[in-house]
Nucleic acid binder design. Structure first.
Lengths: 196, 196
DNA sequence: GACTGCATGTAACCGGTTACATGATTCG
DNA sequence: CGAATCATGTAACCGGTTACATGCAGTC
């Protein structure tokens, strides 16, 4: 799924600037399962404008730089949805340097393993914390797709964020339950090696 | 984490050919949290050979093409471990086209949403099935890191595969528990729109 | 007969990241 | 006084994917 499609999707929730779109992929709903950086978003928006998928209005702001607020055209909206119908979704891919490193825990200093586990635990906590507030109705963030008039999440979004929460929870639980056992195991093996 | 490092890691479990390394990232232990394609593995192995990190022996086979079996040099082993000590692991990233699409469930035909959910469920099942056999002692696959003399998984690997299992389980559970609710919700909304 | 698995390798291409350029404002 | 946030944009670079090239053996 390329950045152009991602931008169209981001604009399904209403108007947004390039900077704001990045936020959606950095901290917002999409951050958990997609990503896009500014260096790719801006060119994508330019091309989408040329192709008539989006239009923009320059908005002046006080004490802030001006911004270009983009909006889907009806053609853009149709094209996005049509695209989804034809796309066969790519495989989910999860990439984790930490897990790869942990694979070699026996060869690493126990302190590093511990640090890696702590790091991973912390990251999951942050991610979880990022999902929960997204559900609150008093969220003032603008134009993020999925919020209905009454403040509820749309069913699709509710499902997706619920799934994210479940995954982070499961990961966190597992780490907490097995961290000490792993460390102890590793320590015990070190001692065996020494004493032999 | 680049393919060169990944290859070194793959060879920590013993000798392997480029083709076999790909299998580790396609179906094996690593497949769940890293990936590498042949088009990147072969050049990586060539460079690693030039740099003295690995050596290879050409092995003739019956009814099969010859293969180059690569092995870590002591320098390669040291260099890999040193690298891990210095690396600060990149953030875990999970990318999922399906979840992105599900975000727009309300705008899509209910049948597509159903198909997406089924697809996702099936993928999780396959992934789970791929982890479990990895644990069996009678696994004959060669040179995959983490297997000890007695057939047990090394502690780090056990942890990682356990974590993978927990994640897939949680995802699968969530999908199964919430799939029908989502579909029903979407159907109900369609009817409301019609009747209005 | 067609497709899949085994096996290696090259190269074009493409997409995205990273870094640079610029600049005002606010916060610690 | 730095650092971070807001805000846009360009471009070099790089890494990896995809596709191509080749060929034999076994299976459906």
């Amino acid at each position: 799924m390329d950045v152009r499609t991602l931008c169209l999707g981001a604009l399904m929730g209403g108007e947004a600037s390039g900077y704001e779109i990045r936020k959606m992929f950095e901290d917002g709903t999409y951050s958990h399962f997609q990503m896009a950086s500014l260096g790719s978003i801006y060119p994508a928006l330019t091309r989408l404008t040329q192709d008539g998928m989006v239009t923009f209005v320059e908005k002046e702001q006080e004490n802030r730089p001006d911004k270009k607020v983009y909006q889907l055209t009806s053609e853009g909206r149709r094209s996005f949805l049509r695209g989804l119908l034809q796309t066969r979704p790519g495989e989910d891919r999860y990439r984790s340097d930490i897990l790869f490193m942990l694979t070699f825990a026996e060869e690493l200093p126990v302190e590093l393993t511990e640090a890696l586990l702590d790091e991973m635990e912390a990251r999951q906590e942050i991610a979880l914390a990022q999902i929960d507030p997204d559900r609150k109705r008093d969220d003032t963030s603008c134009g993020i797709y999925g919020r209905e008039e009454n403040g509820d999440l749309k069913p699709g979004c509710k499902f997706v964020s619920g799934l994210g929460e479940a995954m982070y929870r499961a990961t966190l639980d597992f780490i907490r339950k097995n961290k000490t056992a792993l460390i102890d195991d590793l320590r015990a093996r070190r001692n065996n090696h020494k004493s032999r």
